[in-house]
């Protein structure tokens, strides 16, 4: 690990200013991903700007019925928040399904959204990886790729985004509040992440040095009937083999509103718009849910080891929606 200077900014403006002035600086949230990658030599910042003591650690109920979650709110506090548990179970469940109790006590909202892929080649500096070292090649494409993408990948990168939280937030049409050199602005979560394309090293649309200050959940009464299903290779403490965030609002048995997002299938949390379209306005049945998932997954291009993700994602879509429909 490269020696680094440590900076604890007094406010958001100072934090952003340090990043603007230092080409090799990084924000430090809970550190659960950044410290890990620094030890591996994958990230080598000169300066760490510790954002955890900034006043961004509150959860605020907004007048419009939405919720603003500060960027440094820890995952465990967010999952335990009474409003989240009541109004956004999909969010609480996604958080609780992630990592472990200790890690959730450390991980922050902002850091979680910007955690890097768990692709094993990305994490090993002795192997080729375009995301870590542009132009070096993608070792995963023809390597061990069971955990990697089936949708929207490119020859340059087949990585997935590992966050569970981000999948729930994608389903909830979250707005990410950021602060960069030009000041504060809002980014829709749908616009936050990029497809890998020819530049997998560029993962988000944020400007370098942009600080996430909060995420804002729009009011969504339908989210009271929502859930997050995650399937993993052991009962707990593992990244997703497949996951689905689902919000379902029925009018009788007709689907009035539905939000679906998938984890573990793509370079970004995958909002399943096509499946939602299939579902909306039709009488709900498990068969309909299966057809909707098929529509979404029609363009899946499994790699050598991850073909199971297609039927798996389909199965958990059906299960999540069926459970919500009957709850």
């Amino acid at each position: 690990m490269k020696a680094f200077r440590y900076h604890r900014p007094a406010d958001v403006a100072e934090a952003v200013a340090v990043l603007a002035a230092e080409p090799q600086a990084a924000y430090l949230g809970g550190g659960t991903n950044l410290v890990d990658l620094m030890k591996l030599g994958v990230q080598r910042p000169d300066v760490l700007v510790d954002v955890t003591r900034l006043p961004l650690d509150t959860v605020e109920e907004l007048p419009d019925g939405g919720l603003r979650i500060g960027a440094t709110v820890r995952n465990s506090d967010l999952a335990a928040h009474p409003v989240v548990r009541r109004d956004y179970p999909v969010l609480a469940r996604a958080l609780l399904a992630a990592a472990s109790g200790q890690l959730r006590n450390m991980a922050t909202t902002g850091g979680n959204l910007l955690q890097r892929t768990r692709c094993v080649y990305f994490q090993d500096t002795s192997k080729a990886c375009n995301k870590r070292e542009p132009g070096s090649g993608c070792a995963a494409l023809h390597g061990q790729n069971r955990d990697l993408a089936v949708l929207d990948w490119s020859e340059q990168c087949v990585a997935t985004h590992p966050s569970d939280l981000a999948v729930a937030l994608a389903a909830l049409d979250t707005v990410v509040e950021v602060h960069d050199a030009d000041g504060p602005r809002d980014v829709r979560i749908a616009d936050l992440y990029r497809s890998p394309g020819t530049h997998p090293e560029r993962e988000t649309t944020l400007a370098r040095g942009a600080l996430i200050t909060a995420v804002r959940l729009p009011p969504l009464p339908a989210a009271r009937r929502s859930t997050y299903l995650k399937v993993r290779d052991r009962a707990s403490f593992a990244f997703a083999a497949g996951s689905v965030a689902a919000v379902l609002n029925l009018d009788g048995d007709v689907v009035r509103d539905v939000r679906l997002a998938y984890g573990a299938v793509a370079h970004r949390p995958w909002r399943a718009y096509r499946a939602e379209e299939e579902l909306r306005g039709r009488p709900f049945s498990p068969e309909l849910a299966a057809r909707a998932a098929d529509a979404e997954l029609a363009e899946a291009r499994p790699l050598r080891h991850n073909g199971f993700k297609v039927p798996l994602t389909r199965a958990i879509t059906v299960r999540a929606l069926t459970e919500l429909a009957s709850s």
């Binding site: 440590y6 430090l28 809970g30 591996l40 760490l48 465990s76 472990s100 006590n105």
Partner: peptide, 26 residues
């Protein structure tokens, strides 16, 4: 040393954390 086993768990301000992923300076 990477947050994956829990052997390093300590209580920080009363909350359990994995101390291998916490820089002491923080």
């Amino acid at each position: 040393d990477h947050g994956q086993c829990g052997s390093c768990t300590v209580l920080l301000d009363g909350r359990r954390v994995k101390s291998c992923l916490v820089f002491a300076v923080t």
